[in-house]
Computed example of a mutant assay.
Amino acid sequence: MPLFKIPSHFINGFLTVIFGGSTGIEVSTVVASATIGNNICQNRFSPNLYKLELICAGVVAGVSILFGSPIVVWLFAVEVIAKKLNKSIFVSCTMSAMVAWGFLLVMKPDIFLDYRITDWKWSSFPFFIVLSLLGGTLSVYFTLLVTRLKNFFSGINNNFFRVNLGAITVGLMILEFPFLYGDSYHALAPLLQHPTQYSMLFLLSLVILKPLASALTLGAGGDGGVFAPSIVVGGFLGFLFAYVCNNYLGTSLIYLNFMLVGALATLSASIYAPLTALFLVCNLAPNAYVLFFPLLMASFISRYFAGKLLPYNVYTYQMK
Rank of each mutant, 00 (worst) to 15 (best):
N283V: 03
I18R: 12
S139Y: 06
Y255A: 13
A32Y: 04
L15K: 11
G24H: 01
T143W: 02
S214P: 01
L216C: 05
V130K: 05
L267V: 03
E53T: 10
R148K: 15
L149S: 03
W74Q: 14
A77S: 15
V146E: 03
R148H: 11
L296M: 12
Y315E: 13
Y198P: 06
D183T: 12
K320D: 12
L49W: 03
N86A: 04
L206N: 08
T147W: 09
V17R: 03
N38K: 13
I271G: 04
P211E: 01
T266L: 10
S270E: 11
V78I: 15
Y198Q: 02
K121V: 07
P274V: 07
F153Y: 07
F45N: 10
K210H: 06
A263K: 04
L310R: 03
R162M: 08
S46Q: 09
F128R: 06
L145Q: 14
Y304T: 08
G135F: 13
Y248G: 00
S299T: 01
A167F: 13
L237W: 00
A273Q: 03
H194V: 04
F161R: 12
A288D: 05
V170I: 11
L267E: 02
L267F: 01
I254G: 04
F112V: 14
W74N: 13
A269L: 01
V232K: 05
L260Y: 09
L54F: 14
G21V: 07
Q42I: 12
F125L: 15
S299R: 00
L105I: 10
C282L: 15
I231N: 03
A34P: 02
S64Q: 11
F160G: 04
A263T: 02
G307K: 09
I174Y: 00
L267K: 07
V226T: 15
I25V: 15
I71W: 06
S69M: 13
L165N: 01
T137V: 13
A77F: 10
V130P: 00
F4Q: 12
I18Y: 01
V106A: 14
F177V: 04
S184A: 15
L192N: 08
L260V: 11
P229Q: 09
L256P: 02
L180N: 02
L256Y: 09
G58P: 12
G135V: 11
W122D: 09
G225R: 04
G102K: 01
S64G: 06
Y255Q: 11
A215Y: 05
T316W: 00
N12Y: 02
V99P: 01
P70E: 10
A269F: 05
R116D: 08
M107A: 11
F4L: 14
P195L: 10
C41S: 15
F142D: 03
V281A: 04
N38E: 11
L52H: 06
L216H: 01
R44M: 07
L249T: 07
L149Q: 02
S230W: 10
F236N: 11
F305Q: 06
S123N: 13
N12C: 12
Y312A: 14
I111D: 03
L172F: 14
N283H: 14
V63S: 11
V60D: 08
V130F: 12
